[in-house]
Write a protein that binds this DNA or RNA. Structure first.
Length: 571
RNA sequence: CGGGGAGUGGCGCAGUGGUAGCGCACCAGCUUUGGGUGCUGGCGGUCGGGGGUUCAAAUCCCCCCUCCCCGACCA
């Protein structure tokens, strides 16, 4: 494509409403334009990226034997009223009315429609399994659209739906999709992890969220850079530290109390005693089915309430609020210790076993104790990993350091079960003539969101640096003819090279504009094609063009005759 | 929806009662030609909309609309 003909206007200034780098750069570089809150136009360069990402998704879905269809965006509201999901979505759904006053909505997803479709067409066990998918625009009237493409009201989504005979079939299909997702995001050059989601409201629904690591992400998650471990902060664990050597408590002096006036809280006591916070035992009070419970962790750590609840399930667990403390003056907030006769449940993190003695509360205002030894001075009724994981904790799987980061949810896979098939009548008849609901799964990828995630990961101060797999053009050819006597020769050489590269079926963006070199270089870096080739009088005199790899900034000279081969080798 | 802020040329902004300006972009000319060259001259605006106050409103008052930012959702 000749840039002189390309519908493109780059901006020197950042858009005023830019809140994240991806949106800022995509607008500045002329890939997209905002039309309304959360709604964007895709200009030629952006359209090519969109098509490239969609094509990767398409290829992997096809490889997973899903079949592409296109469902309508405008859907009768009646379809959504059958199972009451119009109410569940509420104002999140765009609604409209036709001339006959029939209510419609703009599809936020398509379980209902696709389930109805399959229910109407298929009814035999011989038809299954079946997977269908579409890549289509979705609409959600978000409370607060933000971060450009990351949370739009109109977005391109791949949504797939599987129909199996039974749960085993679903599990197989689910694994196939899960693997396909790994390939999609790997091809998109994203740093990502699959995070196991919490059980859905139906209970037991397995799902995974694919999180792309990014500072602008909206969810915290824990992941290992070495292996593929990843988890929500609530359910993340770490490899337990070794327990203190057996018998170590024998050398611990007898527990003694200390006067610690006006020192509630770990930090204050640690400061007074000159001890590190990690030598203090933090005791958090919980109500456990009406009984008193304590959760014990080292003083420098936070208690993961979710983990405590999980460890003590099915008992109901509630962390103490101010009213609870008022009802239990025997547990003075800030001076709680684990050695308390009225406490029925003591759950401790394994890290508590790693020290033979602790400084902790004396269950009396202005009093703490030291030399409190687990087992000797206080009992632990259950051991469970209950600290909130922080960066640097050892991975439970491989032992290397974990990272806690924010992530962008770029995809999700979900085992739906029979919720929709039952509600919408998607049944099949088995070989014995009995009817069963089809067992469904659904699988989403936010295509336009993926693009934002890619830019978040692949950019620098100068602009975007597209991975080859999704770049709108593979090569950005820059001609610098100048106005000297060599101008015509440079232009001719660049034109020839352009034709040569195109003949080799490379996607080439050719900057043939009459602009100064500075403008052209700045635009090339901003637009972000993986490889830049510069044809100028200087190089031409030596028979070379300069190559620059956008992502790394590496430059080298290529002899004119070798350019095509070198570029093809790199592509 | 709650709280905070903003709507002035395509983009970024200034302009607190006297009839609208700057930078970028765009057009023309000259200039420069390996990292957003410089100069000159241009095109382009019902100042978000409606109503009101005033001799006079971008500016003051009222109503409405849109957008942005901070808190509960999701691809």
């Amino acid at each position: 494509m000749r840039m002189s003909r390309l519908f493109l206007r780059t901006l020197r200034d950042d858009p005023a409403d830019a809140d994240v780098d991806s949106y800022r750069l995509l607008v500045r570089a002329g890939y997209i334009r905002r039309v309304s809150s959360g709604i964007y136009s895709w200009l030629p360069l952006g359209q090519r990226v969109l098509a490239n990402v969609a094509q990767i998704v398409r290829e992997e879905m096809d490889a997973a034997e899903a079949q592409e269809i296109t469902l309508p965006i405008a859907q009768p509201l009646e379809l959504w009223q059958k199972n009451g999901r119009d109410k569940a979505y509420g104002p999140l759904m765009f609604r409209l009315t036709d001339r006959k006053e029939t209510a419609y909505c703009l599809s936020p997803t398509a379980e209902e429609l696709v389930t109805s479709l399959v229910a109407a067409e298929y009814s035999s066990y011989r038809d299954l399994p079946l997977s269908l998918y579409q890549i289509n625009w979705k609409y959600r009237d978000e409370l607060r659209p933000r971060f450009g493409l990351l949370r739009g009201r109109e977005f391109l989504m791949k949504d797939a739906y599987s129909f199996d005979l039974d749960l085993d079939g679903l599990r197989t299909t689910y694994q196939t999709m899960y693997d396909a997702y790994h390939r999609v995001f790997t091809r998109c050059a994203l740093t990502f992890r699959a995070v196991e989601g919490e059980a859905g409201e139906m209970g037991g629904d397995v799902n995974h969220e694919f999180m792309a690591v990014a500072a602008v992400g909206e969810d915290d998650f824990v992941w290992c850079r070495t292996c593929d471990y990843a988890a929500n902060v609530e359910v993340a664990t770490r490899r337990a530290a070794a327990a203190a050597s057996p018998g170590a408590e024998a050398t611990v002096p007898a527990m003694e109390s200390m006067h610690t006036p006006e020192r509630p809280g770990i930090a204050a006591v640690a400061e007074l005693l000159g001890e590190p916070a990690s030598a203090l035992l933090k005791c958090m009070a919980f109500d456990v089915d009406g009984e008193l419970g304590l959760a014990l962790v080292p003083g420098d750590r936070e208690v993961n309430e979710f983990a405590v609840a999980h460890a003590l399930a099915p008992r109901k667990v509630r962390i103490f609020d101010d009213a609870d403390f008022d009802r239990h003056p025997e547990l003075p907030k800030g001076y709680i210790g684990p050695h308390h006769p009225q406490v029925a449940v003591v759950v401790a993190d394994p890290a508590v076993a790693a020290r033979a003695e602790w400084v902790t509360g004396a269950n009396s205002v202005d009093q703490h104790v030291r030399h409190a030894s687990p087992g000797r001075d206080f009992a632990v009724t259950e051991w469970a990993p209950i600290v909130t994981i922080v960066s640097g904790d050892p991975c439970p799987r491989c032992g290397n350091a974990l990272s806690v980061d924010r992530g962008i949810e770029v995809g999700q896979v979900f085992q739906l079960g029979t919720k929709y098939s039952n509600a919408l009548g998607a049944f099949y008849t088995d070989e014995h003539g009995a009817q069963h609901p089809m067992v469904m799964g659904c699988y989403g990828i936010g295509v336009s969101r993926v693009i934002a995630a890619i830019v978040e990961e692949h950019h620098d101060d100068h602009g975007i640096a597209w991975p080859q797999s999704v770049a709108p053009y593979q090569v950005h050819l820059v001609a610098l003819p100048g106005k000297g006597e060599g101008a015509a020769a440079v232009r001719q050489a660049a034109d020839d090279l352009y034709e040569q590269l195109r003949a080799a079926r490379l996607d080439v963006l050719y900057d043939d504009r009459e602009q100064s070199p500075g403008v052209k270089f700045a635009d090339a870096d901003l637009l972000g094609m993986p490889v830049q080739l510069t044809v100028g009088a200087k190089g031409l005199a030596r028979g070379v063009v300069e190559r620059k790899v956008r992502a790394t900034g590496e430059r080298d000279d290529l002899a004119l005759a070798d350019v095509l081969g070198a570029v093809l080798a790199g592509a």
